[in-house]
């Protein structure tokens, strides 16, 4: 396959960026999108140019490190992560636009790499449970109803990649935050912090400069893990419940 790539190049956080055009040849349809970028980078290095910086780690769709907005879609045209997107999703001769996640809370570090530590701080604000350290407790000591376990698992699938923020017209982190809140709030292990979790995580989300939710639904369409839009409804419900309860104490 022969492709024309238009890639966002930005030297560092303070520099102005722009789209640069590259031609790549000899791309196999079985390559992943990242392998295609590796091919481009090998050529750039041989030519003595600066390779394109992009985030990646496990390359098997479970770590949440890879990003990239491809032709206007977070993680590209398939509902998966960029590392699991294969070149067979494109046609020979295509022009492909590759851009970084765009949000005030995700500043560009270099080229296609953005700083997603705002997500870490949202997790620090409440995305944990209080558990005693030491020997692992008996697994069946705390029964969890099957529907609750399924609900928690559906939300626990979030890998924190940030595609929801990238796709949202408001740069909102509601889907990310809600998946974390719902995951822990439904489980007995998460019960002690049920109220503080949602209040603190939403407050941190606001403080990081993410936008609000206008229920455009683009986050859920972009999510490679299929976190449903209703997750946000669930968090709104938890937030209202916690606010009412906090007011009484």
């Amino acid at each position: 396959m022969k492709l024309t790539l238009r890639v966002w190049r930005q030297k560092n956080a303070d520099a102005d960026g722009a789209m640069s055009t590259y031609e790549v040849d000899g791309i196999s349809p079985d390559m992943s999108f990242l392998e295609m970028l590796d091919t481009l980078n090998e050529e750039l290095i041989l030519k003595g140019e600066d390779p394109v910086a992009f985030d990646h780690d496990c390359r098997e769709g479970i770590c949440g490190a890879c990003s990239l907005v491809i032709n206007g879609d977070a993680h590209g045209p398939e509902r998966t992560t960029t590392c699991q997107l294969h070149m067979r999703s494109f046609r020979d001769g295509d022009t492909i636009d590759v851009e970084p996640w765009r949000a005030a809370a995700f500043p560009v570090v270099k080229d296609l790499v953005v700083d997603r530590s705002a997500f870490d701080r949202i997790i620090q604000a409440g995305g944990y449970i209080t558990a005693p350290t030491g020997a692992a407790p008996e697994a069946h000591a705390t029964p969890v109803p099957k529907p609750d376990a399924d609900f928690a698992f559906e939300h626990a699938e979030c890998i924190g990649c940030g595609a929801c923020v990238a796709a949202c017209p408001n740069g909102s982190a509601m889907l990310f935050t809600s998946s974390k809140v719902n995951h822990l709030n439904v489980l007995p292990q998460g019960a002690p912090e049920r109220e503080t979790r949602v209040l603190d995580m939403v407050a941190q989300m606001d403080e990081e400069g993410f936008g609000g939710c206008t229920l455009a639904g683009e986050c859920a369409t972009a999510c490679p893990k299929g976190i449903p839009l209703m997750s946000i409804t669930g968090m709104n419900k938890e937030w209202l419940r916690a606010t009412r309860k906090a007011g009484k104490r």
């Binding site: 907005v69 032709n71 809370a105 609000g212 639904g217 683009e218």
Partner: peptide, 28 residues
């Protein structure tokens, strides 16, 4: 106030644009 926050949260636009939300959502 919410709109100000939303616009501030997405200061730079994508070069490759796609309008996918419904007309009703975009015209709020």
């Amino acid at each position: 106030q919410l709109s100000r926050r939303d616009i501030k949260a997405r200061p730079s636009k994508y070069v490759h644009k796609k309008a996918r939300t419904s007309y009703a959502t975009r015209t709020m």
